[in-house]
């Protein structure tokens, strides 16, 4: 049986405090890309009681995603937006979701992201990451952007870190570990980078801007 909305809110307030939880509940966070980074960022933020998530990905769940992404074998072939929404609502039934099964391009960035307070870049390809970063910082200057670069392979967990590049731009990762170096993405290290991004979003909402 699903608890009442008030019961879940009270549980969150007990953990985070009333004032902080109010900020989390009032916030809208966009997650661009729902792979190893995005599916974990979304899970963490849904559990923390963020009020509204904008989930964007053009892809379907593939068998090769299961080693590091928050999907189930029963969801193979489904749109990641819909599959993730289903999983998130099992943890946070009153979460508001906006789903876009679409590829992010220079042309649609502003329209897709204008309602977000904070934007998490969780895309795969370096060109797409750079495009989104440039576009958001140029066209949506009031938003906070939390991007990621360098989390592949079996390198040290301690190499993953968060840097504040400018007032509104944070970058998580080790900066160098590329997927093309013979080693793919390994679940805990990607989750770690996603955790940096998700926690940075929560810290921004808590008005803790330094890293």
């Amino acid at each position: 049986m699903v608890p009442e909305q008030n019961a879940l809110l009270e549980a969150l307030q007990q953990r985070h405090g009333r004032e902080l939880q109010e900020r989390f509940t009032a916030a809208t966070v966009a997650i661009c890309g729902l792979g190893g980074l995005g599916s974990h960022i979304a899970t963490a933020l849904a559990r923390a009681g963020i009020g509204r998530l904008i989930l964007i990905d053009f892809d379907q769940v593939d068998i090769t995603n299961l080693h590091r992404q928050q999907y189930k074998v029963t969801q193979i072939g489904r749109c990641k937006t819909e599959a993730l929404a289903e999983n998130l609502l099992e943890m946070a039934p009153y979460l508001e979701l906006e789903l876009h099964c679409i590829r992010i391009t220079e042309e649609n960035v502003e329209e897709l992201l204008q309602r977000a307070d904070i934007i998490c870049e969780a895309l795969d390809e370096p060109e797409a990451k750079a495009m989104l970063t440039n576009r958001v910082l140029e066209k949506l200057p009031g938003k906070y952007l939390i991007a990621a670069s360098g989390m592949a392979g079996m390198g040290s967990v301690n190499a993953i870190r968060t840097r504040r590049i400018t007032e509104h731009f944070y970058l998580c990762g080790d900066g160098t570990s590329d997927v093309s170096e013979g080693m793919g993405l390994v679940a805990p290290r990607v989750m770690l980078c996603a955790a940096h991004q998700a926690h940075t979003a929560l810290r921004i909402l808590a008005k803790e801007y330094e890293v």
Partner: peptide, 29 residues
């Protein structure tokens, strides 16, 4: 502290004391 738009790389002249940060993305997500 401000982004330099991609369309302005050719006309942006670097001046003494500028602090530049080049963020170079690698793949994976």
């Amino acid at each position: 502290g401000d982004i330099i738009p991609r369309t302005q790389y050719e006309e942006t002249i670097l001046t003494e004391g500028d602090v530049i940060e080049v963020v170079s993305f690698v793949g994976g997500g």
